[in-house]
Amino acid sequence: MTAMTVTTDPRAVAETVTDPELPMLTLADLGVLRDVRVEDGTVVVEITPTYSGCPAMGTMRADLLHALHRAGFADVDVRTVLAPAWSTDWISEGGRRKLAAGGIAPPGTAPVRTAGPVPLQLGPTRRTAACPVCGSPDTEELSEFSATACKALRRCTSCREPFEHVKEI
């Protein structure tokens, strides 16, 4: 790589990498890509896991390395940052539009976590999500847990289509 002159902005390259499980979103849309900078000739990329057990972190790391290597950046260091914890509030407006267009209802506002005890939520959850197929606001939750840790399963009571919803965290 010594003879190669790199003119591309590494951030622009990192921002093109998509999420392995929500391929309509980039890692930047998802809020997982926290920082891209150059330190002493090394591109340092910071990513944060959505959930502690997110199995996609290894693939995200590899995809970022791959994209940056292919763009001519030989020295790339992908680091994990744990704090502050990822929140669905970090999903960009563009990302929310892409989710909805892809048939997945975007999240509402994440619950505010204060320092004290976390209150019990015993009733059905009050979250709402419009149907991404027909747009009806009349939808019901089938399960708070779906095919990936970050999604719940809902059904539209108007058009009866089941759909996934990125749940607020």
């Binding site: 914890a85 019990l120 015993l122």
Partner: peptide
């Protein structure tokens, strides 16, 4: 502290479920 802050969000779902 960071592991705990992340875990709180998940554990609230587990407990309530």
């Amino acid at each position: 502290a960071a592991i705990a802050a992340k875990g709180v969000n998940e554990l609230a779902y587990h407990r309530d479920h």
